[in-house]
Design a binder for these strands. Sequence first.
DNA 1: TTAGGGTTAG
Length: 609
Amino acid sequence: MSTRKLIQAMTKKSISHQEIASNIVKGLNKSGVKSFTKTPALLSNLDSHVAHLVLLNPDLPPQSCMTFFNFLHQNPSPFSHKPDLRVHVTLISRLYEAQKFAEVINVLNYIANDDSLRSPVENIVSLIEDGTHEPKFVEKLCDMLFRVYTDGRMFEDAIGVFDYMEKSGLKIDERSCVVFLLALKRCDEMGKCYGFFQRMVEANVETTVYSMTIVIDGLCTRGEVQRAKNLMDLMVDRGIKPNVVTYNTLINAYVKRNDCVGVNKLLRSMKSDQLAYSAVTYSVLMEWNWKSGKIGEVEKLFDEMRERGIEADVHVYTSVISLNCRVGNIKRAFALFDELTEKGLFPTSHTYGSLIDGVCKVGQMEAAKVLIKDMQGQGFNVNQVIFNTLVNGFCARGMIDEALNVKAVMEQKGFETDMFAYNSIASGLCKLKRYGEAKGWLFTMMEKGLTPNVVNFTTLINISSKEGNLEEANRLFKEMQKKGVRPNIVTYNTLIAGYCKSGKMKEAYKLRGEMKAMGMVPDVYTYTSLIHGECVSGKSDEAVKLFNEMEQRGLKQNQVTYTAVILGLSKEGKSDEAFRLYDQMKEAGLTPDDRVYNSLVCSLHTPRS
DNA sequence: TTAGGGTTAG
């Protein structure tokens, strides 16, 4: 048919949809979408039904189907209707047959993101032409749609697909469920994440340890460690065994909570499951030993790991570097840094971050600058964490102006000042007894729309109690809980310290009871504050009782603890006991300061009270 | 091909 005749035929609308479609196909096969510019009349009868027939025509290759579809999307003006759902489904069928799965996903994205197209999966499936596909087509299509909704964070729609698949007896791929669980976890939707995992199990999805570990990790991150452990036990009964990753996740959670019993139980269980430690297990255990004050054990574990043939990766090196920095062993930290580069490993921004923090903590701000130069030379930009580390480094040494300079540079680089920086500035000012300014910075933070977290509240409580305003401290403590911010052990210790300093022991003990009821175990700080409080109140015998209680609980007294109790005993003329503890203090490798010596001397001519 | 460990504030 000549073009002229064709135009005549089409304008007369005397030919069928099928004929129009096949003419379009011919045009497309001859000169692609250019055929529409060459012969605009081809467009005049093109509606969704014709488009559907075009796409269904086997003479049009799948790639041309896609080109045609894209043309329809990009040039909506010539049509009265935009491509409807059936056009999309038809195209998907053609693309699927040709195994062009990435293109299928693209088309599904069009459907998912267009309010006029998005429909229950039943409707989509009902539009598939019967008998033209392999049996797995619907299953695979649902799976892809499930993933598209997941990637677009359209969780309810994704669940809709899951429901349909379960109802229709379609096999659900665990890997897609894993992606869904991860997406929920990343969006902090742990309630839904846990619920979905339960549904997976009920729907008999072939659940593996992967899915279980994702949920366990999510629960741990949200602080629901017991629930995480219960889930693990429950799944063991159902035949899903935890692996080393599951154990690492849970052990890490117990380490973070200082739960000695929990850690040891899991280590025993890991042993009876005959699971060998991985590099991650060693990292977690090193942190655990450091927290328990066993610094020597850290390097022992590091050696043991390598003796067992487990290569130390950059994460392990960063851990050991960080732990050494935290005890002020900068020399060792730098030696490890050299070792890792000699091994051909590349330091990360975290490695630099821990070293920079280490040198800041010992006041070597110049060394920090050198490290930053080096880091930049390695192609790392100074990130927010590093900026915050510097701000904190200066604040901790009372160099507020220098800290504010860093803050200005940070903002110039496009970083917003965050809660870390605000808190560092506030606590730096608090140490300088500039309480009003300290509070002012935290108020500014809130005015900027940042929601104060547990650390910010704790800092505010600390400032108030340093000012001697315990009512305000207590008010803040109540306010934070009202706002859903859960106090942690540091918050309790801060408030307890405040009460103890002003001799309000009844309130202090009440808080200790409260924190215990919340499942927190009083630590060295809690006891030291209480000991100090009893001494201030002239009850050194009570202080000694607490001191002994620490030993029973496996808590190691530090320099501050000894100083408090020795000063308290001396003040009451109990010089024998004071001297005994002084000896004990030196045996523990701690250095008594001038206040201790002076008080001991005074104790000799103070009558026993 | 999907899960775990490493840097900052009280």
